[in-house]
């Protein structure tokens, strides 16, 4: 499953980062930070054919031996990054898309919160739990409760 999910603002600064492994959070920060280079390249419409840029899902940005890093950018230039474990070979492209879709819905809801000021860090608990859900963390808790 996803080990890290990040929301990056228009200005390429982090607005929200959630890692399963908080102890190694910084490692993921680096991964996500460097992936912005590729996101920017992909969003740079100038040297691309129209077909592959129109989708909000940007596909896999790069991979390391342990992780695969996927990107997604909204029409408003908000970027979502999901880091998946490479070993998780069963995860198909469509499932990743689905994760991003959920994330985007959660984000759009978070932005609609009148207490949220666009451009600030996202601190909404609802968004947090939505992200946890995407990462499969919330499900586990529920199971434990049952």
């Amino acid at each position: 499953m996803a080990v890290c999910i990040a929301v990056i603002g228009k200005d390429n600064s982090p607005k929200y980062i959630k890692c399963t492994d908080e102890a190694n959070a910084l490692q993921f920060h680096y991964k996500i930070h460097t992936s912005i280079d590729i996101v920017e390249e992909k969003l740079n419409i100038g040297n691309k054919t129209a077909a592959d840029v129109r989708e909000l899902f940007l596909g896999m940005l790069y991979s390391t031996e342990e992780y695969k890093i996927f990107g997604y950018a909204t029409n408003t230039k908000i970027k979502f990054i999901i880091v998946l474990q490479s070993s998780n070979a069963t995860l198909r492209d469509n499932e990743v898309r689905m994760m991003f879709r959920k994330l985007h819905i959660a984000y759009a809801n978070a932005v609609s919160d009148p207490f949220y000021i666009p451009g600030d860090q996202i601190q909404s608990k609802i968004f947090n739990s939505a992200v946890m859900d995407i990462m499969g963390l919330l499900v586990d808790e529920k199971k434990i409760l049952k």
């Binding site: 200005d11 390429n12 600064s13 982090p14 959070a25 910084l26 920060h29 680096y30 930070h33």
Partner: peptide, 22 residues
């Protein structure tokens, strides 16, 4: 590359850029 300028004036609250934790 980390958008870190060592001049504090350029890193003031209004125009700070980049990734704080990094």
């Amino acid at each position: 590359g980390f958008k870190l300028s060592l001049d504090p004036v350029e890193m003031s609250f209004d125009n700070r850029k980049g990734w704080p934790s990094i």
